[in-house]
């Protein structure tokens, strides 16, 4: 029997194709388009090849932003992951404390990012901010708008306040899913508190920690709103991360070509890191025969 070919079903895919085209493909291709062209105005563009890419990769400005961003991600991960685990370990397992802790933990996650920035911008001010004035009153010469270390300290503190909850909630969910029998077996085997953590809790948290690290790395590597609101990338450019630099270049200086090239490099780095991370974590471990 001849099979009837009916391709009308493809129309059902059309809405999704349109949505993805307008939300992702067309904007991305526009960026690709700008990144290989140059203009002297009047909406006349001409081919520039890889010139913008070479320029971005050869500029100190790009590598400095990159270094600042990597340092920021490293610091933030080094604080938030262990801190999140410690808090999750100490949260109550049952009773009224559970919902109370969960709500308290969720609060920072529910605040819009620019509001987080505004909160800390005011909170850390030495004249009207509680944090800033207390630190000044304690005798420290603190001013996040002038001093490099103070600016970094403020932004890192803000990020820890904002995002440690995410790590806590993920770890808490992971801990709660460990059956009681494991703890009972550990008691019977005479395991110390450290051994219980090292050989039961940590291995069982493996999966959620991978997710937590990936999420926190990505978010901190692409951070924009909060430091932009608090320091605007300053003092000077010491808190100018990749995304802030990118916006400065694209919107501030209207250098569409280099900004597009930088966007694509930025995008490829994020993609590469995600891929490496995914490959490493999903690879089956080697077994000693």
């Amino acid at each position: 029997m001849d099979k009837t070919w009916n391709n009308k079903a493809w129309f059902f895919v059309l809405p999704v194709l349109l949505l993805v085209a307008f939300s992702a493909v067309i904007p991305l291709m526009t960026v690709v388009n700008y990144s290989v062209q140059d203009t002297f105005g009047n909406n006349e563009f001409f081919w520039a090849g890889t010139e913008w890419f070479q320029q971005v990769l050869a500029s100190d400005r790009f590598w400095e932003s990159m270094a600042r961003n990597l340092l920021f991600s490293a610091i933030v991960l080094a604080i938030e992951i262990p801190l999140g685990i410690v808090i999750a370990l100490n949260m109550p397992k049952r009773g009224i404390g559970v919902p109370v802790c969960l709500v308290l933990m969720s609060l920072p996650l529910l605040i819009p990012w620019n509001v987080v920035g505004t909160i800390w911008q005011l909170f850390a001010r030495t004249d009207v901010g509680l944090f800033g004035s207390v630190v000044t009153w304690l005798g420290f010469d603190y001013n996040y708008g002038r001093d490099t270390l103070d600016a970094w300290f403020t932004i890192v503190l803000m990020d820890v306040w904002h995002w440690t909850s995410l790590v806590v909630l993920l770890c808490y969910a992971g801990l709660m899913s460990i059956p009681d029998a494991y703890y009972q077996a550990a008691k019977i085997d005479g395991a110390s508190r450290w051994s219980v953590f090292r050989f039961i809790q940590l291995p069982k948290l493996n999966r959620v920690l991978q997710i937590a690290i990936l999420l926190r790395f990505m978010d901190s590597f692409m951070i924009y709103t909060e430091p932009f609101v608090v320091t605007g990338g300053g003092p000077g450019s010491v808190t100018t991360f990749l995304s802030i630099d990118l916006v400065k270049m694209a919107v501030g200086q209207f250098d569409l070509g280099p900004a597009s090239a930088m966007s694509i490099i930025y995008f490829l780095i994020v993609l590469l890191v995600s891929w490496v991370f995914y490959t490493v974590t999903t690879q089956p471990d080697e077994d000693r025969a």
Partner: peptide, 11 residues
């Protein structure tokens, strides 16, 4: 004690 579900130290 041997439990209902196998308890081994995974790592």
């Amino acid at each position: 004690q041997v439990f209902q579900f196998p308890v081994v130290y995974d790592t």
